[in-house]
């Protein structure tokens, strides 16, 4: 950190002015980044009439949760008018198994590729890694044919498979890079102590993998929860994940445009990942930087 307190700026007034300017600029930027969130929240708490009369930045005169209730319980997704809640559960049912399976496989892969290296381990890793960079458009058509053949098209199971398969490269990358920095001597010591592949993994490696497990889970959860492309391509009607439902609600052309409901639905969709971000931001950033070359 270049430290203004010790390095630089001449003392006194000029310094104070510069600091003031600095904070002003930062606050303006904060407003820019917070503005959409503010608009989402206030709009979702207003009634439609109030939205038409007021402006984006006016606070709700009467706070009402009607829009939230409507979005959750009654909003129409396609022909189904029972709110976004069923799709919320679709997303949960899709994300939880996919996150767990891909994280476990990633941990095992990373461990095997670093601590029990075999000939060609590097090539195997490089080939797995390639999957992180492929634009998913290139697998869409074969995947929809394959899911159809497997009989899991338009199902949550199908989406779990898709997310596991294309999440694997990231989780493997995370764990592999984490395990590379764990000294091999630990495994050697345990080998001499008589422990085998799975004993070492279970008793020695896994207990010290806490941070990277969190990173992997958060990354995978965010990716899978926020995914739209796979959800839109491989699901339809009642099996769709929440992002697809949200887009559907927002882009429904029939009836009166209910901006407050749109915003409530958007907030509901964004809430789980926002919550994760607020609670475990440190790990979220770590995941981003570790798997940064992604889409």
């Amino acid at each position: 950190m270049a430290d203004l307190q010790t390095y630089g700026q001449d003392s006194g007034l000029k310094h104070t002015l510069l600091r003031g300017l600095l904070y002003l600029v930062l606050i303006l930027f904060s407003i820019y980044y917070l503005f959409p969130l503010f608009v989402m929240v206030t709009t979702s708490l207003k009634s439609l009439t109030e939205i038409r009369e007021g402006t984006l930045i006016s606070l709700p005169r009467v706070v009402t949760f009607d829009a939230w209730n409507y979005a959750w319980n009654e909003a129409c997704v396609g022909v189904e008018c029972s709110g976004i809640k069923t799709f919320f559960w679709n997303s949960v049912q899709m994300a939880v198994p996919a996150v767990l399976i891909s994280t476990i496989l990633g941990a095992l892969n990373g461990y095997a590729l670093t601590k029990f290296r075999f000939k060609g381990a590097n090539i195997v890793f490089a080939m797995l890694l390639f999957g992180c960079f492929v634009p998913f458009q290139v697998v869409l058509l074969p995947m929809s044919v394959t899911l159809g053949k497997l009989g899991i098209a338009n199902s949550t199971t199908g989406l779990v498979l898709v997310h596991v398969v294309y999440g694997l490269c990231f989780t493997t990358l995370f764990f592999r890079n984490y395990y590379v920095s764990i000294p091999d001597e630990l495994v050697k010591a345990a080998t001499i102590d008589g422990a085998g592949f799975f004993t070492i993994f279970w008793r020695i490696i896994l207990p010290i993998s806490g941070p990277i497990i969190v990173v992997s889970i958060i990354w995978q959860f965010t990716q899978i929860w926020n995914d739209f492309l796979f959800g839109a391509s491989f699901s339809s009607g009642g099996s769709a994940p929440m992002t697809v439902a949200l887009n559907n609600i927002v882009n429904t052309t029939t009836g009166v445009k209910q901006y407050n409901v749109d915003m409530a639905a958007a907030l509901l969709t964004g809430l789980p990942t926002l919550l994760v971000y607020v609670l475990a931001g440190k790990y979220f950033v770590r995941g981003l930087t570790a798997g940064s070359v992604k889409g």
Binding site: S30, D227, T269, L274, G281, V285
Partner: peptide
Amino acid sequence: VLRTVFLYPMALSFIVTGTVWKWI
């Protein structure tokens, strides 16, 4: 706090982002 504020949009789905900007 500022870092959190600058970075939180990255946690959102692009669909959510699109929805709110469409409204704005």
